[in-house]
Design a protein around this nucleic acid. Structure first.
Length: 460
RNA sequence: GGUGGGGUUCCCGAGUGGUCAAAGGGAACAGACUGUAAAUCUGUCGGCGAAGCCUUCGGAGGUUCAAAUCCUCCCCCCACCA
């Protein structure tokens, strides 16, 4: 089990590969360089990009050199693969901005220090291209007959939207990237989602035709949840990796809400926990799985946002919901706290002036006490005066963002979905005043899972 | 360039002068049941301190007591032909 291919297969990262035998042989070599492209179509990557990111991370763990290629050039063109609609063309300033955000996120997953990995932007070579030489050197290797048979284009050729010429060129540009990376970095392996099959194969062909060398492709699966949805899409939009766009505690909640059937699969894909331990999870059923979900959420948040945020999210979940300690025997390699520090303990710590509680997380010693205090439930500050005058409940829910409009807020309360300090609100215009304040704050809740804290601020 | 078909609320999609804040489905939200899961059942699903009023059917004008619906111009998409 020390072959990377076996590891990736076992964890569920491989849907398909080109030249199976040669690829395994190639991967026995130590100097493997592989790459994945990331489109800068948004200022942040989202959960849907985790499979590529994690696969690169595993490659790196295995001692290979990964290249993360940001599509600053191809982003200007727009990849039609797997899209049913034409993408909006993005202008270069937006793309530049997006690249900044994405770079930072990639570096949470991959270590770029000391040449262990390379971060590149294909705008560096694509934007220099001259049309006629490109057509003559690269374009002549592409058969339109073959291109229109590619699955990625077929869909669009059939669709009502059609396919315009700029997008049709995307395949050439991505192939050219592979050629460039092969020439400059000796990169022989490209990974990509199943929608990238056509583009990857085209790149392999181009290198073979122009350099008479063999290169390889690994196709990563498009992960869908067991209920059939794409990863990372919720009604509220995507689950972003950027902590400004998706707060770490919501990111944590996203993983907590994982479907029972997906827990083991997701632990394998989205954490670094050993497979031996994950296999044991598969045997769990019913409510026992919730501990595994807690670990999944903790580990995933740890990777994306760091230990501090993971702890904060863990503790606010433990205090807002029914606390659920994670038994020692479940996924023992996880650094999730297990010392039974639950709701009562948390408030005890809040009030007591105990010496710091040391815990070791990811090899670093942190003071658990400060982490506990730092609750990551979203909160809003309110003036004492404002509260003394009183605010109708439905206004407050709207104000704080638990409802999108006054009407929605009224509905929420009328349907019995609004709770004030744990007690159900009966009247939509119940006047919330300072008498509802408990320990300098008011806990608002909408439905089962959405919380918001209102903290009282003195005027002085 | 020609001909034809389209653009409706978060998405799909019905609606061709008043009964339209607009059928139906999906998504979503809330309640019940639960385990912060899934399934199921029930309710809600433009905005407004809610009586009533205001804004919405690609955009701008117009006809009419009355326009998503009729007319004019414009923008965008698709198919076929060139």
């Amino acid at each position: 089990m020390n072959n990377i291919i076996d590891i990736l297969y076992e964890r569920g990262f491989i849907e398909n590969t080109t030249h199976d035998k040669e690829l395994s042989r190639y991967l026995e070599d130590e100097n493997v360089t592989c790459y994945i492209g990331f489109d800068p179509t948004a200022s942040s990557l989202h959960v849907g990009s985790l499979v590529p990111l994690m696969s690169l991370a595993y490659m790196q763990k295995h001692g290979y050199r990964p290249i993360a290629l940001i599509g600053g050039g191809t982003g200007l063109v727009g990849d039609p693969s797997g899209k049913t609609e034409t993408r909006q063309l993005l202008n270069s300033e937006i793309i530049e901005e997006n690249i900044c955000g994405i770079k930072e996120q990639i570096s949470r997953f991959i270590d770029f220090s000391e040449g262990k990995a390379i971060l590149l932007n294909n705008a560096d070579w694509l934007s220099q291209l001259r049309y006629i030489p490109f057509l003559r050197d690269i374009g002549r290797h592409f058969s339109v007959n073959r291109m229109i048979k590619a699955e990625s284009y077929k869909m669009r050729l059939k669709a009502e939207e059609g396919l315009n010429f700029i997008e049709f060129n995307y395949m050439l540009l991505q192939s050219y990237d592979f050629l460039k990376l092969f020439d400059k970095y000796g990169c022989r392996l490209q990974l990509g989602g199943s929608d990238q099959w056509g583009n990857i194969v085209a790149g392999i062909d181009l290198v073979r035709r122009m350099r008479h060398e063999t290169t390889f492709g690994i196709i990563l699966p498009l992960i869908t949840t067991s209920s059939g949805e794409k990863m990372g899409k919720t009604a509220k939009g995507s689950v972003w990796l950027d902590s400004k766009r998706t707060k770490p505690n919501l990111y944590y909640q996203y993983w907590i809400n994982t479907d029972d059937r997906d827990v083991a699969r997701f632990l394998a894909l989205f954490t670094f926990l050993p497979m031996v331990e994950i296999k044991k999870i598969e045997k769990l059923s019913g409510a026992d799985l919730n501990s595994a979900k807690t670990v999944l959420a903790f580990e995933a948040t740890l990777i994306a946002h760091g230990d501090k945020e993971a702890l904060k999210a863990y503790h606010s979940a433990q205090s807002n919901f029914v606390p659920r300690p994670v038994p020692k025997e479940i996924l023992p390699s996880s650094s999730i706290p297990r010392n039974g520090m639950e709701r009562e303990d948390i408030s005890a710590y809040m009030n007591a002036t105990l010496p710091p509680i040391r815990a070791e997380i990811k090899g670093r010693v942190v003071d658990l006490k400060t982490e506990i205090m730092a609750d990551s439930t979203p909160c809003t500050y309110i003036n004492e005066d404002q509260l003394k005058a009183g605010i109708p409940a439905f206004k407050l829910y709207h104000m704080v963002g638990l409802a999108n409009s006054g009407s929605a807020s009224r509905r929420l309360i009328a349907q019995g979905g609004a709770y004030l300090n744990g007690k159900r609100l009966e009247l939509f215009d119940y006047l919330i005043t300072d008498s509802d304040v408990d320990n300098m704050e008011i806990l608002l809740r909408a439905g089962k899972k959405r919380f918001h804290k209102l903290k009282v601020k003195n005027n002085n």
